[in-house]
Nucleic acid binder design. Structure first.
Lengths: 214, 214
DNA sequence: TATGGAATTATTGCATACAATCTGGGATAT
DNA sequence: ATATCCCAGATTGTATGCAATAATTCCATA
């Protein structure tokens, strides 16, 4: 699609994920329309789509604001991922094609390269991490699983604090990614599922520790 | 909200779930606008929301058609429910409030009453069944789990054939509902999770048998 | 000074008009 | 006869104007 509303949607979407539009920020139709050089009509369509991505809150006559997620909600989302993604990894090991493996290993290499730097740039790492998980779900051949889980993965990007990991955690996470890719390559479905479960639970434990949860 | 787009959305939504707008049916903005006595503008907003419910397919310049789900996709959806709903039942047993119990038992009674008739009216049973599962998820206190899973439950209603069960299956299903409600009432979280797992897997096996899957 | 309310302003909701695009049929050339 | 191109109708995409609603400010009053 090359429609205006689609361009506007993607732009706003990206700006929310990048943090340019911060949580709580008001998104006025008129402002956005002027900014993107279109009328309010395509902006309205774009905003409606963002509601369904659960990236903005929209109430009639009151407008749209960038939606935030409380720590507890982020925990819930990670717990759901802990239920879904191991199954995705298991099926990926059984159904993956060569193109999936190529992209998975490529993503591993790129993330590791970014991880070698002294200052970790999470704004660059996060999209690669997301993509890794999405490719794995795509490789599972389960389209519904891909759709449902992808939206959850994106939401984890909204909370900026989630991106901040200690060096050791990043190294461990990248190592798990590579183990996952290898298990999937070799068709070791149980192993892949187990690694993914540990991987998500590690992120969960990490997040809980950061927010000082019980 | 009392906006026109909201009314239109709910009406179309209901008509799709009820089967009045069949799978594959083209939804023209102009037709709908005339039919509901509004302009195309609120209709477009409503259609956009239905896209995000994954109830219609929408491609630019080509319009909207009621989306169908292939048997394999429906299996995928049930498999996802088999991952999520047991966890919902487990937490419901721990977090449920009295109002949840009241509604669960009420729904059981109403379903059983409908089940006593000689001719099973699935158009009446299905909404109660859906509601039962939703209340259980609501009782879990996990808002994200509720949102994610509810959309999946609704999709199972799109396929009409899914509604057709044999008498024995209906009786078994209702019995499981009541066992679930009791387990939740007593706070037996493991039991509730186990019953739910069996419940969804029974629906899954049933569906696979109907479509003649391996 | 604090408070309540009314008017004003800003913003969203809807309708209409027009532009862009797709679809289908028929004419024409091979 | 068949394939291709083009045009007309239909449908969606966008812009704009106006109505409806919510937020804000300012003034009157306690």
């Amino acid at each position: 699609m090359a429609t205006s509303s689609d361009r506007v949607y993607r732009q706003i979407h990206e700006r929310i994920l990048s943090g340019e539009y911060a949580v709580g920020a008001r998104l006025r139709e008129g402002e956005l329309a002027t900014q993107f050089g279109v009328s309010r009509t395509p902006v309205r369509i774009a905003l409606q789509r963002l509601v369904n991505d659960r990236l903005i809150d929209f109430t009639a006559h009151a407008g749209a604001i960038v939606r935030g997620y409380a720590d507890a909600e982020m925990v819930e989302i990670l717990e759901i991922r802990a239920l879904l993604e191991p199954q995705g990894a298991r099926l990926a090991a059984l159904n993956r094609k060569q193109e999936h493996l190529d992209e998975l290993f490529d993503l591993c290499a790129r993330m590791e390269k970014l991880g070698d730097r002294n200052d970790l740039d999470f704004s660059k790492i996060a999209p690669l991490n997301n993509r890794f998980h999405q490719v794995l779900l795509d490789a599972s051949g389960q389209r519904q699983l891909l759709v449902v889980t992808t939206s959850l993965i994106e939401l984890n990007n909204v909370v900026q604090s989630y991106r901040k990991f200690a060096r050791a955690d990043v190294d461990r996470s990248f190592a798990e990614h590579r183990q996952l890719a290898k298990a999937v390559e070799r068709g070791q479905s149980d192993l892949a599922a187990a690694i993914m479960l540990a991987h998500v639970h590690a992120a969960l434990a990490n997040f809980k520790m950061r927010i000082g949860a019980p």
